[in-house]
Design a protein around this nucleic acid. Structure first.
Length: 419
DNA sequence: TCTGGGGTCCTAGGACCC
DNA sequence: TCTGGGGTCCTAGGACCC
Protein backbone atom coordinates (compact mmCIF):
# COMPACT_ATOMS: atom_id res chain seq x y z
CA UNK A 1 0.00 0.00 0.00
CA UNK A 2 1.03 3.59 -0.63
CA UNK A 3 0.28 6.67 1.41
CA UNK A 4 0.33 10.11 -0.11
CA UNK A 5 0.84 12.71 2.57
CA UNK A 6 0.20 16.29 1.55
CA UNK A 7 0.51 19.43 3.65
CA UNK A 8 -2.61 21.55 3.51
CA UNK A 9 -2.04 24.98 1.92
CA UNK A 10 1.61 24.52 2.74
CA UNK A 11 3.15 27.99 2.40
CA UNK A 12 0.17 29.66 4.04
CA UNK A 13 0.29 27.09 6.84
CA UNK A 14 4.02 27.72 7.40
CA UNK A 15 3.33 31.41 7.93
CA UNK A 16 0.53 30.66 10.30
CA UNK A 17 2.61 28.39 12.52
CA UNK A 18 4.50 31.45 13.72
CA UNK A 19 1.51 33.77 13.86
CA UNK A 20 -1.14 31.66 15.53
CA UNK A 21 -3.34 34.72 15.84
CA UNK A 22 -4.01 34.15 12.14
CA UNK A 23 -5.53 30.71 12.66
CA UNK A 24 -9.01 30.80 11.15
CA UNK A 25 -8.18 34.00 9.23
CA UNK A 26 -7.73 34.29 5.48
CA UNK A 27 -4.12 34.57 4.33
CA UNK A 28 -2.35 34.43 0.99
CA UNK A 29 1.30 34.05 0.01
CA UNK A 30 2.75 35.86 -2.98
CA UNK A 31 5.19 34.53 -5.56
CA UNK A 32 8.67 35.97 -5.96
CA UNK A 33 8.62 39.66 -6.70
CA UNK A 34 5.22 39.83 -4.99
CA UNK A 35 3.70 39.10 -8.37
CA UNK A 36 0.77 36.77 -7.84
CA UNK A 37 -0.81 34.45 -5.29
CA UNK A 38 0.76 31.01 -4.97
CA UNK A 39 -0.78 29.77 -1.72
CA UNK A 40 -4.07 30.43 0.04
CA UNK A 41 -5.54 29.39 3.35
CA UNK A 42 -8.97 27.73 3.22
CA UNK A 43 -10.55 30.98 4.37
CA UNK A 44 -8.96 32.87 1.46
CA UNK A 45 -10.16 30.19 -0.96
CA UNK A 46 -13.66 30.51 0.47
CA UNK A 47 -13.57 34.25 -0.24
CA UNK A 48 -12.97 33.43 -3.90
CA UNK A 49 -9.27 34.24 -4.29
CA UNK A 50 -8.04 32.16 -7.24
CA UNK A 51 -4.63 30.57 -7.57
CA UNK A 52 -2.34 32.92 -9.49
CA UNK A 53 -4.36 36.03 -8.67
CA UNK A 54 -2.26 39.00 -9.82
CA UNK A 55 -1.24 41.17 -6.90
CA UNK A 56 -1.98 44.47 -8.60
CA UNK A 57 -5.51 43.38 -9.38
CA UNK A 58 -6.34 41.92 -5.98
CA UNK A 59 -4.52 44.13 -3.50
CA UNK A 60 -7.63 46.17 -2.78
CA UNK A 61 -9.75 43.08 -2.33
CA UNK A 62 -7.27 41.70 0.20
CA UNK A 63 -7.37 44.90 2.17
CA UNK A 64 -11.14 45.17 2.12
CA UNK A 65 -11.60 41.60 3.24
CA UNK A 66 -8.93 41.55 5.91
CA UNK A 67 -6.82 39.03 4.06
CA UNK A 68 -3.30 38.85 5.45
CA UNK A 69 -0.60 38.92 2.77
CA UNK A 70 2.90 37.42 2.86
CA UNK A 71 5.84 37.56 0.48
CA UNK A 72 7.23 34.13 -0.31
CA UNK A 73 9.83 33.01 2.22
CA UNK A 74 11.35 29.90 0.70
CA UNK A 75 14.02 29.55 3.36
CA UNK A 76 11.25 29.08 5.89
CA UNK A 77 9.21 26.70 3.74
CA UNK A 78 12.22 24.57 2.88
CA UNK A 79 13.14 24.16 6.51
CA UNK A 80 9.59 23.39 7.61
CA UNK A 81 9.36 20.84 4.82
CA UNK A 82 12.42 19.02 6.10
CA UNK A 83 10.90 18.84 9.57
CA UNK A 84 7.69 17.36 8.23
CA UNK A 85 9.58 14.83 6.09
CA UNK A 86 11.79 13.76 8.99
CA UNK A 87 8.74 12.90 11.07
CA UNK A 88 7.06 11.05 8.20
CA UNK A 89 10.15 8.97 7.54
CA UNK A 90 9.69 7.40 10.97
CA UNK A 91 6.62 5.57 9.73
CA UNK A 92 8.31 3.61 6.97
CA UNK A 93 11.83 3.46 5.57
CA UNK A 94 10.45 3.57 2.04
CA UNK A 95 9.61 7.16 1.26
CA UNK A 96 9.72 9.37 -1.80
CA UNK A 97 9.74 13.10 -1.17
CA UNK A 98 7.63 14.10 -4.13
CA UNK A 99 7.64 17.85 -3.68
CA UNK A 100 8.22 20.44 -1.01
CA UNK A 101 4.90 19.58 0.62
CA UNK A 102 4.19 15.99 -0.43
CA UNK A 103 5.60 12.54 0.13
CA UNK A 104 4.70 9.03 -0.94
CA UNK A 105 5.26 6.37 1.69
CA UNK A 106 5.23 2.69 0.87
CA UNK A 107 3.93 0.14 3.35
CA UNK A 108 5.32 -3.28 2.60
CA UNK A 109 4.76 -6.00 5.17
CA UNK A 110 2.22 -3.93 7.05
CA UNK A 111 -0.62 -6.43 6.52
CA UNK A 112 -1.27 -6.78 10.21
CA UNK A 113 -1.26 -3.07 10.87
CA UNK A 114 -4.26 -0.81 10.81
CA UNK A 115 -3.31 1.73 8.18
CA UNK A 116 -6.12 4.07 9.13
CA UNK A 117 -4.57 4.33 12.58
CA UNK A 118 -1.10 4.81 11.13
CA UNK A 119 -2.45 7.66 9.01
CA UNK A 120 -4.06 9.27 12.01
CA UNK A 121 -0.86 8.89 13.94
CA UNK A 122 1.01 10.66 11.11
CA UNK A 123 -1.42 13.51 11.30
CA UNK A 124 -1.08 13.72 15.05
CA UNK A 125 2.70 13.66 15.09
CA UNK A 126 3.22 16.13 12.25
CA UNK A 127 0.71 18.55 13.73
CA UNK A 128 2.31 18.27 17.15
CA UNK A 129 5.88 18.42 15.89
CA UNK A 130 5.57 21.20 13.32
CA UNK A 131 2.15 22.82 13.49
CA UNK A 132 1.55 21.98 9.83
CA UNK A 133 -1.81 20.35 9.03
CA UNK A 134 -1.63 17.37 6.69
CA UNK A 135 -3.99 15.07 4.80
CA UNK A 136 -3.27 11.40 4.25
CA UNK A 137 -4.54 9.18 1.45
CA UNK A 138 -3.77 5.45 1.48
CA UNK A 139 -4.40 3.01 -1.36
CA UNK A 140 -2.89 0.11 -3.30
CA UNK A 141 -1.33 2.37 -5.97
CA UNK A 142 0.22 5.81 -6.08
CA UNK A 143 -2.45 7.46 -8.18
CA UNK A 144 -5.21 5.94 -6.05
CA UNK A 145 -3.40 7.28 -2.98
CA UNK A 146 -3.57 10.68 -4.65
CA UNK A 147 -7.31 10.22 -5.08
CA UNK A 148 -7.72 9.12 -1.47
CA UNK A 149 -5.75 12.16 -0.37
CA UNK A 150 -8.18 14.49 -2.11
CA UNK A 151 -11.06 12.87 -0.29
CA UNK A 152 -9.29 13.22 3.06
CA UNK A 153 -8.62 16.88 2.31
CA UNK A 154 -12.13 17.60 1.13
CA UNK A 155 -13.89 15.91 4.06
CA UNK A 156 -11.57 16.32 7.05
CA UNK A 157 -14.31 15.83 9.64
CA UNK A 158 -15.72 12.68 8.12
CA UNK A 159 -12.34 11.13 7.48
CA UNK A 160 -10.27 12.37 10.40
CA UNK A 161 -7.86 13.70 7.72
CA UNK A 162 -7.11 10.16 6.56
CA UNK A 163 -8.83 8.21 3.81
CA UNK A 164 -8.17 4.60 2.97
CA UNK A 165 -9.08 2.94 -0.30
CA UNK A 166 -8.72 -0.72 0.49
CA UNK A 167 -11.43 -2.49 -1.42
CA UNK A 168 -13.04 -2.44 -4.84
CA UNK A 169 -16.20 -0.73 -3.66
CA UNK A 170 -14.28 2.22 -2.21
CA UNK A 171 -12.12 2.44 -5.32
CA UNK A 172 -15.14 2.69 -7.62
CA UNK A 173 -16.86 5.16 -5.35
CA UNK A 174 -13.78 7.37 -5.14
CA UNK A 175 -13.16 7.34 -8.89
CA UNK A 176 -16.79 8.13 -9.61
CA UNK A 177 -16.50 11.12 -7.28
CA UNK A 178 -13.30 12.54 -8.80
CA UNK A 179 -13.67 14.80 -11.81
CA UNK A 180 -11.43 13.93 -14.72
CA UNK A 181 -9.67 17.30 -14.68
CA UNK A 182 -8.63 16.68 -11.07
CA UNK A 183 -6.87 13.40 -11.75
CA UNK A 184 -3.13 13.42 -11.09
CA UNK A 185 -1.44 13.25 -14.50
CA UNK A 186 -4.37 14.66 -16.45
CA UNK A 187 -3.58 18.23 -17.35
CA UNK A 188 -5.62 20.86 -19.11
CA UNK A 189 -5.05 19.53 -22.60
CA UNK A 190 -5.96 15.93 -21.91
CA UNK A 191 -8.90 16.90 -19.71
CA UNK A 192 -10.38 18.85 -22.57
CA UNK A 193 -9.92 16.05 -25.06
CA UNK A 194 -11.39 13.52 -22.65
CA UNK A 195 -14.39 15.67 -21.81
CA UNK A 196 -15.03 16.03 -25.51
CA UNK A 197 -15.60 12.29 -25.78
CA UNK A 198 -17.80 12.18 -22.71
CA UNK A 199 -15.29 11.25 -20.03
CA UNK A 200 -16.35 13.20 -16.96
CA UNK A 201 -14.93 11.28 -14.04
CA UNK A 202 -11.85 9.26 -13.20
CA UNK A 203 -14.04 6.17 -13.37
CA UNK A 204 -15.09 7.00 -16.94
CA UNK A 205 -11.42 7.23 -17.82
CA UNK A 206 -10.68 3.75 -16.49
CA UNK A 207 -13.53 2.41 -18.65
CA UNK A 208 -11.93 3.65 -21.87
CA UNK A 209 -10.49 1.33 -24.44
CA UNK A 210 -6.76 0.77 -23.90
CA UNK A 211 -6.15 1.39 -27.58
CA UNK A 212 -7.74 4.82 -27.48
CA UNK A 213 -5.68 5.78 -24.43
CA UNK A 214 -2.47 4.52 -26.00
CA UNK A 215 -3.11 6.39 -29.22
CA UNK A 216 -4.19 9.66 -27.67
CA UNK A 217 -2.20 9.82 -24.46
CA UNK A 218 0.71 7.52 -25.23
CA UNK A 219 2.37 5.28 -22.73
CA UNK A 220 2.03 7.78 -19.91
CA UNK A 221 -1.75 7.70 -20.19
CA UNK A 222 -1.85 3.93 -20.28
CA UNK A 223 0.27 3.67 -17.15
CA UNK A 224 -2.02 6.06 -15.37
CA UNK A 225 -5.04 4.02 -16.39
CA UNK A 226 -3.51 0.81 -15.00
CA UNK A 227 -2.59 2.52 -11.78
CA UNK A 228 -6.11 3.86 -11.33
CA UNK A 229 -7.47 0.38 -12.02
CA UNK A 230 -5.63 -0.68 -8.89
CA UNK A 231 -2.78 -2.47 -10.65
CA UNK A 232 0.40 -0.94 -9.26
CA UNK A 233 2.27 0.50 -12.21
CA UNK A 234 4.05 3.47 -10.68
CA UNK A 235 6.55 2.72 -7.95
CA UNK A 236 8.45 4.93 -5.55
CA UNK A 237 11.18 6.82 -7.34
CA UNK A 238 14.68 7.17 -6.04
CA UNK A 239 15.87 10.66 -5.31
CA UNK A 240 17.99 11.48 -8.33
CA UNK A 241 20.46 14.13 -9.16
CA UNK A 242 18.95 17.00 -11.04
CA UNK A 243 19.25 16.89 -14.81
CA UNK A 244 19.14 20.61 -15.23
CA UNK A 245 19.28 23.56 -12.91
CA UNK A 246 17.59 26.87 -13.63
CA UNK A 247 17.72 30.28 -12.02
CA UNK A 248 15.23 32.64 -13.59
CA UNK A 249 13.66 35.81 -12.28
CA UNK A 250 11.24 38.53 -13.19
CA UNK A 251 12.43 42.02 -12.33
CA UNK A 252 10.72 44.78 -10.53
CA UNK A 253 10.06 47.24 -13.32
CA UNK A 254 11.51 47.04 -16.82
CA UNK A 255 15.18 47.37 -17.63
CA UNK A 256 16.78 48.52 -20.84
CA UNK A 257 20.35 48.74 -19.57
CA UNK A 258 22.87 46.15 -20.60
CA UNK A 259 24.76 46.52 -17.30
CA UNK A 260 21.75 45.49 -15.36
CA UNK A 261 21.23 42.31 -17.33
CA UNK A 262 24.92 41.46 -17.22
CA UNK A 263 24.91 41.66 -13.46
CA UNK A 264 21.75 39.57 -13.16
CA UNK A 265 22.94 36.91 -15.59
CA UNK A 266 26.29 36.67 -13.84
CA UNK A 267 24.61 36.23 -10.47
CA UNK A 268 22.20 33.61 -11.81
CA UNK A 269 25.12 31.75 -13.35
CA UNK A 270 27.02 31.79 -10.07
CA UNK A 271 24.00 30.37 -8.24
CA UNK A 272 23.67 27.64 -10.87
CA UNK A 273 27.33 26.78 -10.37
CA UNK A 274 26.86 26.58 -6.61
CA UNK A 275 23.96 24.20 -7.00
CA UNK A 276 25.98 22.12 -9.45
CA UNK A 277 28.81 21.81 -6.95
CA UNK A 278 26.34 20.85 -4.26
CA UNK A 279 25.31 17.77 -6.22
CA UNK A 280 28.85 17.17 -7.50
CA UNK A 281 27.99 17.64 -11.15
CA UNK A 282 29.53 19.60 -13.98
CA UNK A 283 27.51 21.03 -16.84
CA UNK A 284 28.31 20.75 -20.53
CA UNK A 285 25.99 23.45 -21.73
CA UNK A 286 24.61 26.77 -20.56
CA UNK A 287 21.41 28.38 -21.76
CA UNK A 288 20.66 32.06 -21.27
CA UNK A 289 17.39 33.79 -22.05
CA UNK A 290 16.06 37.33 -21.84
CA UNK A 291 12.45 38.42 -22.26
CA UNK A 292 10.43 41.57 -22.41
CA UNK A 293 7.14 41.82 -20.55
CA UNK A 294 4.76 39.50 -22.37
CA UNK A 295 1.77 41.10 -20.67
CA UNK A 296 2.55 44.49 -22.14
CA UNK A 297 1.36 43.90 -25.68
CA UNK A 298 1.67 47.64 -26.26
CA UNK A 299 5.47 47.42 -26.00
CA UNK A 300 7.79 45.90 -28.59
CA UNK A 301 8.47 42.27 -27.68
CA UNK A 302 11.78 40.47 -27.76
CA UNK A 303 12.34 36.97 -26.43
CA UNK A 304 15.49 35.08 -27.15
CA UNK A 305 17.47 32.27 -25.75
CA UNK A 306 20.76 30.75 -26.72
CA UNK A 307 22.38 27.48 -25.85
CA UNK A 308 26.15 27.39 -25.51
CA UNK A 309 27.81 23.99 -25.70
CA UNK A 310 30.98 24.06 -23.66
CA UNK A 311 34.32 22.62 -24.72
CA UNK A 312 34.70 20.94 -21.35
CA UNK A 313 32.42 20.22 -18.40
CA UNK A 314 32.68 22.66 -15.52
CA UNK A 315 31.07 23.76 -12.30
CA UNK A 316 33.30 26.77 -11.72
CA UNK A 317 31.35 29.93 -10.98
CA UNK A 318 33.93 31.93 -12.89
CA UNK A 319 33.68 29.85 -16.02
CA UNK A 320 29.93 29.45 -16.04
CA UNK A 321 29.50 33.16 -15.43
CA UNK A 322 31.86 33.95 -18.29
CA UNK A 323 30.03 31.65 -20.66
CA UNK A 324 26.67 33.04 -19.62
CA UNK A 325 27.86 36.61 -20.21
CA UNK A 326 29.25 35.60 -23.58
CA UNK A 327 25.84 34.12 -24.41
CA UNK A 328 24.10 37.27 -23.27
CA UNK A 329 26.27 39.43 -25.49
CA UNK A 330 25.07 37.43 -28.49
CA UNK A 331 21.36 37.80 -27.83
CA UNK A 332 21.21 41.23 -26.19
CA UNK A 333 19.57 43.97 -28.24
CA UNK A 334 19.42 47.62 -27.29
CA UNK A 335 16.11 49.35 -27.09
CA UNK A 336 13.95 46.76 -25.40
CA UNK A 337 12.50 46.83 -21.92
CA UNK A 338 13.50 43.58 -20.35
CA UNK A 339 11.36 42.02 -17.66
CA UNK A 340 12.70 38.55 -17.12
CA UNK A 341 15.91 36.63 -17.59
CA UNK A 342 17.45 33.34 -16.65
CA UNK A 343 20.34 30.93 -16.79
CA UNK A 344 19.81 27.19 -17.17
CA UNK A 345 22.67 24.72 -16.96
CA UNK A 346 22.17 21.26 -18.44
CA UNK A 347 23.79 18.13 -19.84
CA UNK A 348 25.57 17.11 -16.66
CA UNK A 349 28.47 14.81 -16.06
CA UNK A 350 29.84 13.60 -12.79
CA UNK A 351 32.33 15.90 -11.14
CA UNK A 352 35.04 13.27 -10.78
CA UNK A 353 34.36 11.54 -14.08
CA UNK A 354 34.90 14.51 -16.34
CA UNK A 355 36.73 13.83 -19.57
CA UNK A 356 40.08 15.48 -19.98
CA UNK A 357 40.12 17.59 -23.12
CA UNK A 358 43.43 17.71 -24.94
CA UNK A 359 43.27 21.32 -25.92
CA UNK A 360 41.23 23.08 -23.36
CA UNK A 361 40.31 22.22 -19.87
CA UNK A 362 38.78 23.56 -16.75
CA UNK A 363 41.47 25.21 -14.69
CA UNK A 364 42.26 22.90 -11.77
CA UNK A 365 42.93 25.91 -9.61
CA UNK A 366 39.28 26.84 -9.88
CA UNK A 367 38.34 23.70 -8.03
CA UNK A 368 40.22 24.66 -4.90
CA UNK A 369 39.09 28.23 -5.18
CA UNK A 370 35.46 27.17 -5.46
CA UNK A 371 35.80 24.89 -2.47
CA UNK A 372 37.16 27.76 -0.42
CA UNK A 373 34.45 30.14 -1.60
CA UNK A 374 31.76 27.58 -0.79
CA UNK A 375 33.20 27.13 2.67
CA UNK A 376 33.33 30.83 3.42
CA UNK A 377 29.85 31.42 2.05
CA UNK A 378 28.51 28.53 4.09
CA UNK A 379 29.91 30.12 7.22
CA UNK A 380 29.08 33.75 6.63
CA UNK A 381 25.93 33.68 4.57
CA UNK A 382 25.26 33.12 0.93
CA UNK A 383 27.41 34.89 -1.59
CA UNK A 384 29.50 36.83 0.88
CA UNK A 385 32.24 36.25 -1.66
CA UNK A 386 31.13 37.27 -5.12
CA UNK A 387 32.55 37.76 -8.56
CA UNK A 388 33.41 41.26 -9.71
CA UNK A 389 30.71 40.96 -12.35
CA UNK A 390 28.08 40.62 -9.65
CA UNK A 391 26.54 43.54 -7.89
CA UNK A 392 29.19 44.31 -5.23
CA UNK A 393 26.82 46.13 -2.93
CA UNK A 394 24.02 43.67 -3.40
CA UNK A 395 21.69 46.51 -4.26
CA UNK A 396 19.44 44.38 -6.40
CA UNK A 397 16.39 43.32 -4.51
CA UNK A 398 13.21 41.77 -5.62
CA UNK A 399 9.97 43.15 -4.41
CA UNK A 400 9.28 41.52 -1.06
CA UNK A 401 7.27 43.94 0.94
CA UNK A 402 5.57 41.44 3.22
CA UNK A 403 8.46 39.17 4.04
CA UNK A 404 8.22 37.35 7.36
CA UNK A 405 11.24 36.56 9.55
CA UNK A 406 13.21 33.34 8.99
CA UNK A 407 11.92 31.91 12.22
CA UNK A 408 13.70 28.59 11.95
CA UNK A 409 16.89 29.25 10.00
CA UNK A 410 18.26 32.54 11.31
CA UNK A 411 19.29 32.99 14.90
CA UNK A 412 18.37 36.64 15.04
CA UNK A 413 14.85 35.85 13.78
CA UNK A 414 13.92 33.34 16.43
CA UNK A 415 10.80 34.20 18.36
CA UNK A 416 11.51 35.33 21.91
CA UNK A 417 9.05 34.33 24.58
CA UNK A 418 8.95 36.25 27.81
CA UNK A 419 8.47 34.09 30.86
C1' DT B 1 3.42 50.77 -12.68
C1' DC B 2 1.96 45.94 -11.36
C1' DT B 3 0.88 39.09 -13.82
C1' DG B 4 6.34 33.24 -10.33
C1' DG B 5 9.78 29.69 -10.49
C1' DG B 6 11.62 25.10 -11.05
C1' DG B 7 11.36 20.68 -12.56
C1' DT B 8 10.40 15.72 -15.31
C1' DC B 9 9.32 12.56 -19.07
C1' DC B 10 7.94 11.37 -23.77
C1' DT B 11 7.67 11.77 -28.78
C1' DA B 12 8.22 13.21 -33.49
C1' DG B 13 11.21 14.48 -36.77
C1' DG B 14 15.73 15.65 -38.59
C1' DA B 15 20.35 14.27 -39.45
C1' DC B 16 23.19 10.88 -39.81
C1' DC B 17 25.03 5.87 -40.45
C1' DC B 18 25.36 1.29 -43.18
C1' DT C 1 2.39 6.88 -60.44
C1' DC C 2 6.42 4.49 -59.21
C1' DT C 3 12.31 5.37 -56.37
C1' DG C 4 14.68 0.09 -49.73
C1' DG C 5 15.36 -1.16 -45.15
C1' DG C 6 17.08 -0.73 -40.75
C1' DG C 7 19.24 1.64 -37.42
C1' DT C 8 21.09 5.56 -33.76
C1' DC C 9 21.43 10.01 -31.74
C1' DC C 10 19.92 14.53 -30.85
C1' DT C 11 16.71 18.27 -30.17
C1' DA C 12 12.61 20.99 -29.81
C1' DG C 13 8.34 21.03 -28.19
C1' DG C 14 4.40 19.19 -25.75
C1' DA C 15 2.38 17.68 -21.65
C1' DC C 16 2.54 17.20 -17.12
C1' DC C 17 3.79 18.14 -11.96
C1' DC C 18 4.42 21.16 -7.61
Amino acid sequence: MFALVDCNNFYASCQRVFQPNLVGKPIVVYSNNDGCVISRSNEAKALGVPMGAAAYQWEKFFEQNGIEVFSANFALYGDMSQRVMTILNDFSPEMEVYSIDEAFIKFEGFERFNLQHIGESMHHRVTKGTGIPISVGIAPTKSLAKVANRIAKKFPEHTNNVYLIDDEEKRIKALRWLKIEDVWGIGRKHAKRLQAIGVKTALDFTMLDDKWVQENMAIVGLRLKRDLEGKPTLDLEEAQQKKNIAITRSFEGNHTERDFLEERISTFAVTCAEKLRLQKSCCNSVMVFIQTNRHRVDLPQYNRNILLNLQFPTNSSIEISNFALQALSIIFREGYEYKRAGVIVQDFTDEDATQINIFENSDERHKKLMQSIDKVNAMFGQQKIRLGSQDPKKTWKMKQEKLSPNYTTKLSDIIVIRV
